[in-house]
Every structure is written in structure tokens, then in C-alpha cells.
Computed example of a mutant assay.
Amino acid sequence: MFTGIIESVGSVIAVLHEGTNMQFWITSSLSAGLKPDQSIAHNGVCLTVEAVKDNTHQVTAVQETLQKTHIGEWKAGDYINLEQCLTLNSRLDGHIVQGHADTTATCIAKEALNGSWKYHFRFPEKFAPLIIEKGSVCVNGISLTAFDVTQNSFAVAIIPYTYEHTNMQQLNKGDTVNIEFDMIGKYVVRGMELGRG
């Protein structure tokens, strides 16, 4: 379980293919303190640390993960948002994030607003019931507030701190991001579909 508050930005230093899986070595300020079997959110996707060496750690994405996220596009030099899982004595500064991406979205616009930035994203319309105006949404692991919500798009505003401490500064029009919609909203929609809402 995560909160969508990014702790570090790592960099992919190696990508390996093994059958239908992809392995990644990532260097970051968190890596040296990690241990095998820990769950770490990578651009909002929960992956298990398999090995740690100096200031790098290794994770593997299996076929299911590669099909539902943009991890298969990662290459050496890419910057990745990282967050360790919650502890029971942590503040919940963002919102409840599972690290299970629902889909990907495409950045369709990036606007510099003289001190902040506005990003617009397009997502598959079948997910429209899962996002609301001023609701929480996780973009590449970052807990953000959605606005200008339509059937297949939404916008988010990025403050300078978030811009400087995440990989949003590398994100441009045409880029793909991982999206996780609010878990509570998903349960509500599921209950209604089953006629129990």
C-alpha cells in the first residue's frame, strides 16, 4: 500500500529480456537501503526488489504488468518515480494507492503557467466512471487531483515542488503514463454494477 508521495527519482541503467519478462536495474538514493522482497512503487507500479548492489536495485516486470502499464517502454536513462510502501506509523499525505495500475494514459498537452504546470491526459473511455472532478488519481505513482474531467480526459496541476522532485519535468506531450484510479471509487462502481449500490 502506498500514498502517492514520491520519495526519490531513480534512473534506469540496464534493461534485460528474459522470456516474456523484462528485468530492470535502477539506481536511486533509496536503492542501497532496500532489501530483496520489498515492495516498491515504480512510476506507480508495485514491483518486488529482487537484488540490491551498491546504489542499484533490480526488479522484474512479468507479462501481465507489461500489458497494463508503460513499463515495456522503459529504456536506459529513463527517470522513474519511486515510493516505498506504507508503515503503520506513517501519515497518509496523499491517498490510498495500491500500486496496481488500471491503464495507461497519453499526455495530450503540457502548459507552463508561470510558476506551475498543467498537464492534460487522455485515457480509454471505458474507465470514465472511475474518475471525478476534484477526485484523486495516481499518475506515474504521484497522488494528484483531477479536474477538467471528460469522458476520456482529465487535467492535473503540478506545483514547483512536485515538478522538481518527480519525473514530471521529463514528461511531454505524446508520452505515456501509468494510471491508477481511486480504489474507493472502484469499489463503489463495482457494487453498483452488481446491483448492490
Rank of each mutant, 00 (worst) to 15 (best):
I5E: 05
I6N: 03
I6V: 12
S8A: 14
V12S: 05
I13V: 15
I13R: 13
A14K: 15
V15E: 10
V15T: 10
L16F: 12
H17Q: 11
E18L: 12
G19T: 08
G19C: 09
T20L: 09
N21P: 05
M22G: 03
M22F: 11
M22T: 09
W25T: 04
W25S: 04
T27P: 07
L34Y: 00
L34S: 00
K35C: 08
P36F: 04
P36N: 03
S39G: 14
I40V: 15
N43P: 03
G44C: 06
L47K: 10
V49R: 00
E50R: 08
E50N: 13
A51V: 06
V52H: 07
T60S: 11
V62T: 05
Q63I: 12
Q63E: 15
T65N: 03
Q67W: 12
K68G: 01
T69V: 02
T69W: 03
H70I: 06
K75E: 10
A76N: 10
G77S: 09
Y79F: 12
I80S: 02
L82M: 10
L82A: 07
E83N: 05
C85P: 01
L86D: 05
L86Q: 03
L86R: 01
L88N: 09
R91Y: 08
H95K: 11
H95M: 11
I96T: 13
Q98F: 08
H100V: 04
D102L: 07
D102E: 07
T103P: 06
C107F: 08
A109D: 13
S116A: 11
S116V: 05
K118F: 00
K118Y: 01
H120P: 01
F123S: 07
K126S: 09
K126L: 09
F127R: 06
F127L: 04
L130E: 02
I132Y: 05
E133Y: 09
K134Q: 10
G135R: 03
C138A: 14
G141E: 02
G141I: 00
I142R: 01
T145D: 05
D148W: 06
V149W: 11
V149M: 12
N152R: 12
S153Y: 02
F154C: 05
A155Q: 09
A157L: 14
I158H: 00
P160G: 11
Y163W: 15
H165D: 04
H165F: 10
M168N: 02
Q169N: 13
Q169E: 08
Q170M: 12
N172Q: 15
K173R: 14
K173C: 09
G174W: 02
D175M: 10
D175V: 01
T176M: 06
I179N: 00
D182N: 14
M183C: 06
G185M: 07
G185A: 14
V188Q: 04
R190G: 07
R190T: 11
M192W: 01
E193L: 11
R196V: 13
R196E: 12
